[in-house]
Design a protein around this nucleic acid. Structure first.
Lengths: 368, 368
DNA sequence: CGCGCATGTGGGAACGTTCTCAATCGCGGG
DNA sequence: CCCGCGATTGAGAACGTTCCCACATGCGCG
């Protein structure tokens, strides 16, 4: 064994070790390994060989201390188990890895306090930037603070008005309007919307059964709101002025979409079509519909946001507004990275296209 | 402004800043903040106030350099978009956060090279430990190396024989056997198994259409193998010695479960029941079944591993082998953390219980 | 009265890297 | 012959923290 006895076997090799082995100084070794400055071909090769021999791996922590960059991104989403966020996260990790970054993941369950805690932790770990699907549109002080302190933030899927950050979203208003138009075109007039948005006020205050039409949750998620507005616009466009009769919005973890749907179906004049604002809500609608003995699409038509694997496999196949989930994530990463690399430009709002995929869940209303 | 002018405004406060502000030394400030050693109540309070005033946040990178611990875990899974891994990942991140750890996420798409690259990157970033759903059972040198170098590894969902690491799995053999027994009990004799396991050999060599029964992919994932063995055991138990007639296994990214199923249904004597080894395969089976004009469960019974949200919502509701996905992740985290905290004990293999949930997708075979 | 001990405190090293700076060498041109 | 310049090199600082050790106090006890 000719290995240097000053390195106690177990300890991984460091730059000084490599330098000693190669017979050069730390500086030269560092230069050779990081490939900058000028190093003689001879020294470069000796260092390379020494590093190889000792199995040298750079300590990225130490490097980050100096450079101030960790090549780590923070991703804060509501719930990775929601297929939408799973797809987005997939897009984020893939794009990040391709660009030489890693991703630190956090779930919020739509809870602002959890989001704040996550931001704090990720910043303490010095992530280079944050990709956030904010749980609230107004309580964004922690995001603004991060951004101001030089930790760029990119908003994903959702907007936050006051925040001068990049965002990557979808035209929720337009897509919702388009989807509802298709239901209208099929002859429907009693079209319901089922959605979950925003978290409960705080304690158990507030409406315990928010099933009644209008009272929207406090500080709802922008995405849901936009979809509701698109829905209303389509109805108004068709001459239906009373846009809230069949509008049902609950709060996360409080209301079950299936219950909301059951209420709807128990109405004297029940809806003949339902627009669900995401795939998990569609599942609830589906479940309630069938428990009520109704069939899709003969008795009730269904359209939902998000194209999941099951929407293609069940019968009838369900018609959906497909979002480019992975690309949403990938674009967010690119936006964030160009911001990290130092470009200072005004906030950029990327809006990606959705695609309406017409399958088998829309039919004319029963009586027609 | 009375803030210390030696700190150029933008720069975040450090321990020296706090110490200066509190009129003590770095050491005392550090002790007061980290709450160790002995500090007078007076000094402690002054430091606390100074830290508060300056908005001091510890630099976790610097701390990690010293302590050698990052409080970061690496999670390497096949595909976060697979509901099983989404659930597992959810369990991991939640349990990790509760224990004061963060999670760095990597997807492998069942590719060993990607797994190796992920391990390298995560180790370079000095994660305290690794939770891995290994893409292969034999090529685990990189995992063994990590483990030996003091970066503990916990195997998740899958085994790797040669590796002296903790593992958290499920009794795949028993659960599969139990599921197939139920199909047998309903009167079925022609029971198929559809699965995807292992990645293709390497280039485009090998069978291009591996639909023919026996040739299993090289180095398949242990989980799939165990389920197949459970399936075979149940069949043999019922006196059916030819266990491979209706056995169809493909390789990831090569074969489509729907195609495998279509082949099965085109047989002169098609199966009357199908056992799918995970939810994404069940979706393919479902799709092919219905494209073939058959109905579940009247024409074909179906059982699958993994209880997903859609399995409860579609009609017929599908009977499943439910795995405790979140707990799988949580247990892996606990196993890993106790290992990190220094306990040296022989490898521990945790096996969690599955639950068979009988719903509506099993009926007697058509002729009965 | 002096010794030991516990408590509080500060100085300095260490972690492993990058970066700035000055020093050395060889060599061609004035 | 000497100056200057580029290429190459090494010493030392820095990043922000934790840890080890030495040093002062103060107090009880022999």
């Amino acid at each position: 064994m000719t290995t240097n006895r000053s390195r106690p076997a177990g300890r991984p090799a460091t730059i000084p070790d490599v330098a000693r082995e190669a017979g050069v100084s730390r500086s030269t070794a560092s230069r050779a390994l990081a490939d900058y400055g000028s190093v003689s071909p001879d020294a470069r090769e000796r260092v390379r060989a020494a590093a190889e021999k000792l199995g040298y791996r750079p300590n990225l922590l130490a490097r980050s201390m100096i450079t101030g960059r960790t090549h780590t991104l923070g991703a804060i989403v509501a719930d990775i188990q929601n297929p939408f966020f799973a797809g987005v996260t997939r897009g984020i990790t893939d794009a990040a890895r391709a660009a030489g970054y890693q991703v630190l993941l956090a779930n919020t369950d739509e809870d602002v306090a959890a989001e704040r805690a996550a931001v704090k932790m990720l910043r303490d770990k010095h992530v280079d930037g944050l990709i956030v699907a904010p749980a609230a549109t107004t309580e964004t002080g922690h995001l603004a603070a991060a951004h101001a302190a030089g930790c760029p933030v990119v908003l994903l899927d959702r907007q936050a008005p006051g925040l001068p950050a990049d965002s990557v979203t979808v035209d929720n208003h337009g897509a919702a309007q388009d989807a509802v138009r298709r239901l209208l075109a099929a002859g429907h007039r009693r079209i319901a919307l089922v959605s979950l948005l925003g978290s409960a006020p705080s304690a158990d205050a507030g409406a315990e059964r928010a099933a009644a039409a209008t009272p929207l949750p406090t500080d709802p998620v922008s995405t849901g709101l936009e979809r509701i507005e698109g829905y209303r616009a389509a109805l108004r466009e068709a001459g239906l002025s009373d846009t809230d009769t069949y509008l049902r919005t609950g709060t996360f973890h409080r209301e079950d979409p299936a219950d909301l749907t059951a209420d709807l179906l128990a109405l004297p004049e029940p809806p003949t079509a339902v627009f669900a604002t995401d795939s998990m809500i569609a599942l609830g609608v589906l479940s309630a519909t069938r428990d009520h003995g109704l069939r899709v699409p003969d008795d009730l038509s269904l359209v939902t946001f998000d194209d999941t694997d099951w929407a293609r496999a069940v019968r009838p196949r369900v018609s959906v507004v497909a979002q480019p989930v992975q690309e949403l994530g990938a674009r967010a990463v690119h936006s964030l990275i160009t911001r990290i690399e130092g470009t200072t430009r005004p906030p950029e709002h990327t809006v990606l296209d959705t695609e309406f995929i017409d399958r088998e869940s829309i039919a004319p209303p029963p009586g027609a």
